[in-house]
Amino acid sequence: MKKRVIVLLIYLLSLPIVLASLFIGPSETATPSAIFNLIFNNEGNTYLIKSVLFDVRLPRILLTFLVGGSLAISGCSIQAIFRNPLTDSYILGLSSGAAFGAALSLAYAFLPVQISAFIFGLLAVGLSYFMARKNKNVSTVSLILSGIIVSGIFTALLTVVQFFSDPFKLQSIVHWTMGNLHNANWEKLQSAVLPLSAGLLVLFIYRWRLNVLALGDDEARTVGINPKKDKLIILTAATLGASSAVAVAGIIGLYGLIIPHMVRMIIGPDNRQSIPLNFVFGGVFLLIIDNFSRSLSGFEIPIGVFTMLLGAPFFIFLMKKTSIGWNS
């Protein structure tokens, strides 16, 4: 019963938090009192305030929400199909792969950013998986290690791209890889909304199958599920969601690891409930972090910095708590 109250609160509070976020930001014109003044007394610089609210803040809020929800759901699905509570898109090297793909596209414009990020994200996951595979078995630890290697490779390649880019492009690439939402706008939102929603929709449809797959390949096969096919579909959808998030917001490290665990603590591991909750909680929580990052100091702290500082100790805690082995 207590669980249900918390879940209900999360769902109910999400909309007010989204609305409240409209009032937060470094602008000296669109302060909360100025906005209230405009709404209730119809006084103030209508045009400027409206522009800050609807062209700057609203697209950013929506994008942040989508990115947060998408990283959380994709992390949750990846953990289920790899039967490994210590992974997410960041740890598997997916984020670095997608970042490299996106940077390549930013620097040389040979493919649309989203598509390039998706291709290299998928490539990175594939590499991590096959490097970790030994005797048809992928252990928890070897998957993490191969993820580190793959992540290293693509980070190095990303540096190469940066090295050969002209200073203007370089600045934008560097800023964006740190994980940043400050240049969100309607166009960015538009470019991301389709691939993000497609990935999320597939994962939402497959949410119960995740339970079956999380019990293991043999256990799935004997009850009538083809694990190879299902895992490929789910992994592709998760990669689509996570790589699109990277393409618009840069690397937001470990976020896909933290949120699914928090959601599991609240509601348990049943993915029928946890997938939708991951979306809402992941979206709202990233929005809250972003609100801090754009109001704590005069300049914006990249959001990826926050999630890494939050995620790293959390990862260590999980590693200590879950007794993981090389063979399981």
Binding site: N84, P85, G268, P269
Partner: peptide
């Protein structure tokens, strides 16, 4: 239907 000799669950379902 098949019962495997051992089964290890990763998540507290």
């Amino acid at each position: 239907g098949f019962l495997n000799q051992q089964h290890k669950a990763m998540f507290p379902f």
